[in-house]
Design a protein around this nucleic acid. Structure first.
Lengths: 144, 144
DNA sequence: TATATTGTATAGCTAACCTAAATAAAATGG
DNA sequence: CCATTTTATTTAGGTTAGCTATACAATATA
């Protein structure tokens, strides 16, 4: 099983490298690793507060405020005052921000489309099934 | 097929996130995205010159020289004068550098070991076979 | 020997990221 | 209502990576 995992990871890396390279070529305005992390987080779960985001990335609120300044200036995120608590600001991706992520995902799809086409119908089906099974068994974030 | 690819990418991302998170927790001395790129490149193909590396990352030689200064200071790479041409310096990972990459790969394996164990023997075999088939059909770097 | 190549040192710039401390504004608990 | 706490921001200040151009030294090549 160890040998299989080793091979699996090697192929995984190759695919990953290919995806990153494609995304890199497409991105006119590159963002940093942390900024990408932040945007993905907001994509998965919008409406988080500054404090929550700061805790999530393990930085001080003042740091997070400035990170959001930069992303806001780039037009990717927006602050919105919270309805319940006027001290709190709620962060969401803007249309531009969502579009950026969506575009990257499209680029990824295009980058894999041709290679994926070399698989047969039932191979593709099986492949997705196995990926799902592996994903489903990843430990959840609230783990030990 | 588009729907399958979409699902595939979603699962791929989930696994990727998991791997990165595990590696992040393990890494005491985090390096930047570009530094990681450089080290992976040297891992795949050691003995490149400064000029080659500069061209590979699309930066000026003076920039590359400084990037290598930093990695050298961290103990990850070493410059070695070329035997044929005394102007040229050849770059390789040090033992520490290789060890760092190896450790990360071990961390990845550990992070997937449990989830991978939920697959049956023939599922794993099939999975690796499909990953290989997909990888093999990725366009090579000298493509259109 | 004149010219080209390879890498480096230097000076100087931008940008991201990070913190602590002071502040403003709003909520909350007596 | 008032004291305290909470939330986010501003400010001042520091570190680091990454990038360039220019000048230079060492070496190779024609």
């Amino acid at each position: 099983m160890k040998a299989e995992l080793e091979q699996f990871l090697a192929y995984f890396q190759a695919i990953n490298r290919h995806l990153r390279s494609a995304a890199f070529d497409q991105n006119q305005q590159p963002i940093t690793r942390v900024q990408w992390l932040l945007m993905r987080q907001l994509h998965r779960r919008g409406g988080m507060t500054i404090g929550q985001l700061a805790e999530h990335l393990d930085v001080r609120p003042s740091t997070m405020s400035q990170m959001l300044d930069r992303l806001e200036k780039s037009g990717y995120v927006a602050r919105k005052p919270d309805a319940q608590d006027a001290r709190v600001k709620v962060i969401n991706l803007t249309e531009t921000g969502s579009e950026m992520i969506r575009k990257t995902e499209v680029t990824w799809m295009e980058a894999l489309s041709e290679p994926f086409g070399h698989l047969g119908e039932d191979e593709r089906e099986m492949f997705v099934r196995l990926m799902k099974k592996l994903s489903d068994h990843l430990p959840k974030k609230g783990d030990a």
